[in-house]
Design a protein around this nucleic acid. Structure first.
Lengths: 230, 230
DNA sequence: AGAGACACGTGATTC
DNA sequence: TGAATCACGTGTCTC
């Protein structure tokens, strides 16, 4: 650890301009009048004061900057002993990370969860959006936005439709209002191209939104509760 | 804009140690032998070289630090003209923001969406967790984790149960497997205390998980599709 | 002219 | 010893 206490007593007036002034005084002081010496002394004092203000301002500025750096040290883990450059490098890394995450949220529309977007509209809707490809897993992400009349079987139908594909339901958001339902699904599709994924998913979901009956299925596979009557 | 080109030619050797050496040379140089002058010259040259290395290293250090600062300027919007301190203040703000968002995701368990957590278990479950209070809106966030037998009316019942309370469904995640369903709800409750919110929500959701019949409701309020037979 | 911001070289300190 | 880091005061430039 370094401390850098002000061990050398630089506290006051170490300004070279003063020294310069002193030199000038020494050179021509003997011939000058008393008033001239006074003027010189005044000038010297003034310069010294200005110099002090300057160095003090610079001290304040440094303190401000280092204060922020200290704050960042406190914010980021394992940077207590890091030097300034390394600390800033780490900060750059984190901010980059933040930007990436934020951009991802933006592009997936995952920040649309509040309010407006989740309110069902009056018109039926089946909109698929290609979100992107995960660089590491090479899997395609597709966002599906569905809006239609609400009915109890809907969720089961959706689950069933997705289950028929090689997909992973990453996230679901559902909003209902006045008997209508809005459903946004984030689906991860593997091993297919973008167009294939969009096409297959659209076909699967269209079955649901078109109110396709589940009654074609064998009885023991039908969702419980939807056919308990009879 | 400031440029701070190296307008004053500080490029080489402005080390006061050299000046000091020169002063000493001037003081006792006349009486010394040639070899002594050589030694002095060597020492001077050595000191000058060391001094150069020092100032160059410092220059490199500054360059590294300022390089990171420039990177941060590029990363953050509207910081092109900001001075160092303001830039760092903005960086602190952003990193704090990042930490807050990350902590929120952590505490709400919103990062549990993948894999394990959304797989329904074999046992029924109704677990409510107090997530926290939004500092700005003063609203309570509760996470409800439900696991039970799947049935088509479930979602409608849930929606209905929540609709009977003054709550806002912020986020929903649903996972189904083998006829069972796991459902995690993030619910924002307003105008009640933590305990009130937990209690009311638990009562409302228990009705659902206990398979309470909806048939007590007036016919026109029953969810469509669940009672079309008769 | 006066305050603020920056780069610079330097001495002190640590490893 | 030497390399690296830091705080410091200073000169210079801008507004």
């Amino acid at each position: 650890m370094m401390q850098y206490l002000p061990s050398h007593g630089y506290e006051f007036t170490n300004c070279s301009s003063i020294i310069r002034n002193l030199v000038y005084d020494h050179g021509g002081g003997d011939l000058s009048a008393n008033s001239e010496a006074k003027v010189a002394a005044e000038a010297e004092a003034k310069a010294a004061a200005a110099c002090n203000r300057h160095s003090e301002a610079e001290r304040r500025r440094r303190k401000r900057i280092n204060g922020h750096l200290a704050t960042l040290r406190g914010l980021l883990p394992n940077t207590v002993k890091a030097d300034k450059a390394s600390l800033l490098a780490e900060v750059v890394r984190r901010v980059t990370e933040l930007k990436k995450v934020a951009a991802e949220l933006e592009s997936t529309g995952m920040d649309e969860s509040e309010g407006y977007y989740m309110i069902p509209s009056e018109n039926d809707e089946l909109e698929l959006t290609y979100v992107g490809e995960d660089s590491s897993t090479k899997k395609i992400m597709i966002k599906a936005r569905i809006c239609c009349e609400d009915r109890p079987e809907l969720i089961v139908e959706l689950t069933r439709a997705l289950g028929s594909m090689h997909v992973k339901l990453v996230r679901t958001e559902i909003g209902t209002l006045g008997g209508r339902i809005k459903c946004v699904l984030w689906v991860q599709v593997s091993s297919v191209t973008k167009d294939q994924g969009l096409q297959e998913l659209r076909r699967a979901l269209k079955v649901v939104t078109d109110r396709a009956s589940l009654m074609d299925l064998p009885r023991n596979k039908r969702p419980r509760g939807s056919d308990t009557c009879v």
